[in-house]
């Protein structure tokens, strides 16, 4: 493997973690991402190929599905994002393309995004300062795209109760982190 040393989106060699009373905000660089979009008229074929590869069916609109090591969330009509551990799946897009073949367009998205995980019972109090998504009524295992600090972000409620992920544009990781931190200080 290459000897180039990767940096996290915030520019560190190790991920940033901030702890507040009842909330932890952590930068999560350890995930590979790839988007899949069904080719015209191939949605069903793609769905079965994806299920065979992932071990779980593609989730419905605005929902997520998980089967280790994968998790999947809905992005848009006939479009999903797949997450897998970066260490074992750095070539995630290639693997998926091999599995889905000509049923899908597959695009590497790993470094298009910075992911921050929010865990703890104060998640909602911070998220309500940041975006119009109604985090309290989002069921566990759901995902939505929303505007956060003027940035288009994915907000994912993981199946675990007090666990959200915010995926924002990687180049604005600093601004996004500042917003999360400021909101946490303000709300907690």
């Amino acid at each position: 493997m290459s000897d180039l040393i990767p940096l996290t989106a915030l520019g560190g060699t190790s991920p940033r973690v901030d702890t507040f009373q009842g909330l932890e905000i952590s930068e999560c660089p350890e995930w590979a991402l790839a988007s899949i979009a069904a080719r015209s008229g191939r949605a069903t074929d793609m769905a079965s190929a994806a299920q065979a590869f992932l071990g779980v069916a593609l989730p419905d609109v605005a929902r997520t599905a998980e089967k280790a090591p994968f998790s999947v969330f809905w992005m848009g009509p006939e479009q999903w994002m797949i997450e897998a551990p970066h260490d074992s799946h750095e070539d995630l897009a290639t693997q998926i393309k091999a599995a889905l073949g000509d049923t899908a367009s597959v695009t590497e998205q790993t470094d298009g995004w910075v992911r921050f995980d929010l865990t703890g019972e104060r998640c909602h109090d911070v998220l309500e300062r940041l975006c119009n998504a109604d985090s309290r009524s989002m069921p566990p295992g759901s995902a939505t795209r929303t505007q956060l600090e003027h940035l288009g972000c994915f907000l994912i409620r993981r199946p675990q109760d007090s666990h959200f992920s915010v995926l924002g544009p990687r180049s604005s990781a600093g601004s996004l982190h500042h917003a999360l931190e400021t909101a946490a200080k303000s709300a907690i």
Binding site: A37, A38, S40, G41, Q79, E108, P169, R170, S171
Partner: peptide, 11 residues
Amino acid sequence: MDVQLISTTEA
């Protein structure tokens, strides 16, 4: 048209 688009600017 069978075409799919996605932005990869930052990736």
